[in-house]
Design a protein around this nucleic acid. Sequence first.
DNA 1: GCCTATTTAATTGTGTACAATTAAATTTGG
DNA 2: CCAAATTTAATTGTACACAATTAAATAGGC
Lengths: 160, 160
Amino acid sequence: MTIKTAPSKTPAAPAAGDLLALDNQLCFALYAASGLVTRAYRPLLEPLGLTYPQYLAMLALWEQAPRTVKALGQALDLDSGTLTPLLKRLEAAGYVTRTRDADDERRVQVALTPAGAALKAKAAEIPAALACRLDIPAQDIAALRATLQALARRMRSEQT
Amino acid sequence: MTIKTAPSKTPAAPAAGDLLALDNQLCFALYAASGLVTRAYRPLLEPLGLTYPQYLAMLALWEQAPRTVKALGQALDLDSGTLTPLLKRLEAAGYVTRTRDADDERRVQVALTPAGAALKAKAAEIPAALACRLDIPAQDIAALRATLQALARRMRSEQT
DNA sequence: GCCTATTTAATTGTGTACAATTAAATTTGG
DNA sequence: CCAAATTTAATTGTACACAATTAAATAGGC
């Protein structure tokens, strides 16, 4: 029989004993929430023929295209090992083109095809559909987003 | 030349025109933050010989073991397609055992080996090391965690 | 100019993720 | 009891994700 040493008055601050409990890990909360949100997108993206990471790449390209693989990687926090095959699939689907930059043959410019640009109109409904499923006030969503972006900014600037 | 229709007074609420901008997506903020945090764990987990998802599985087992593959899957939000190979690697590393349940041969019980249980002591330093890198007040971390857990709870209960 | 260092994508190998299927064991309805 | 439905893991196939390496192109120092 064990004696509870301190019936914590602040449930948000984990007791020393269960620092490793899954429920006390911010990292796991992030991991699980990210996975759940990604899964929620799947049925909405399927009609467009896109996976979730492909959707993110298209978002980046709808904002600005053409872009180099490197620029896309910086926007999405992904490296060429992930992007190269992903972009080849988008190319096979007819949404983007990949062409060596004539000025600098190391670079590959990723551009939208007409079909890729046209897809933006169909995608326009997705954020609203998802916000509806999340069922959270828009204000709270914006606040959570800002908190996460601040966290990401801090971590990026801190690469030891 | 375009005319700005409404110089938004609330920068957190995106204008209609850029609903699809990457910076306005909660999903991408989650995705990017989750990836960055996972990457921050990597150097800390390498001395233990664990990947980040393997670490999550060990966290779940340190909390309660033995557990069935299904119970682990529910705790981690992962299915057998992901867990089976991951657990086989943990078994090969000598941290867990996988044995068919005699009472119900459909189940596989995952238990900790002495080495697996002993690993918990080494892992105990990790949360503090990471909290230090995040450089956020413990209170804010707890608040963000609670927000994400509430979001996850809502999404889980809403599977259409 | 020339040699070296850097930059940029692609490739290779390992490890998640997940949908769909399979196969075996258990539960349930009649 | 017994056939059908359900449960549980494993398997298969596709798609990320990243470290490490490779290869080609460019930039910089001398």
